[in-house]
């Protein structure tokens, strides 16, 4: 009791993104569990996953896999770079935005 539902904001964001996209009909939840289960298995080969960051890293990998054809990996990588740069360029305390965003 009293434990937070999500231990990091990005876990929550990733969870919500997945639920939202499934409800919008981009993939069924059953397909999601298969894809996610496979990602957990792959990631669990090298080390035992503890259900925290590593679990959500597998989740992210699965979401990108199931969105193959909708969200291009190269575009995601480019936007990741832009977000990183935006954080580095933003003074602490100011809202972080993408240039032109």
């Amino acid at each position: 009791m009293g434990e937070p539902a999500f231990t990091a904001p990005w876990h929550a964001q990733l969870f919500a993104l997945t639920v939202h996209l499934s409800e919008a009909g981009h993939f069924s939840w059953s397909d999601w569990t298969q894809t996610f289960g496979a990602a957990l298995k792959r990631n669990g080969l090298a080390k035992e996953l503890d259900g925290g960051d590593d679990y959500f890293a597998a989740w992210l990998e699965a979401l990108e896999a199931i969105l193959h054809g909708i969200a291009d990996g190269a575009k995601i990588a480019a936007l990741t770079d832009q977000w990183r740069q935006a954080y580095l360029d933003t003074t602490h305390g100011e809202p972080v935005r993408l240039p032109g965003g």
Binding site: W10, L63, L67, L79, W83, Y87, L88, D89
Partner: peptide
């Protein structure tokens, strides 16, 4: 002092959300 840089997966989730 710049804003605290989120972890790599956190940035990637933001990127995915931006794209979608």
């Amino acid at each position: 002092a710049h804003a605290v840089l989120p972890s790599e997966p956190a940035l990637r989730v933001k990127a995915l959300e931006t794209l979608l």
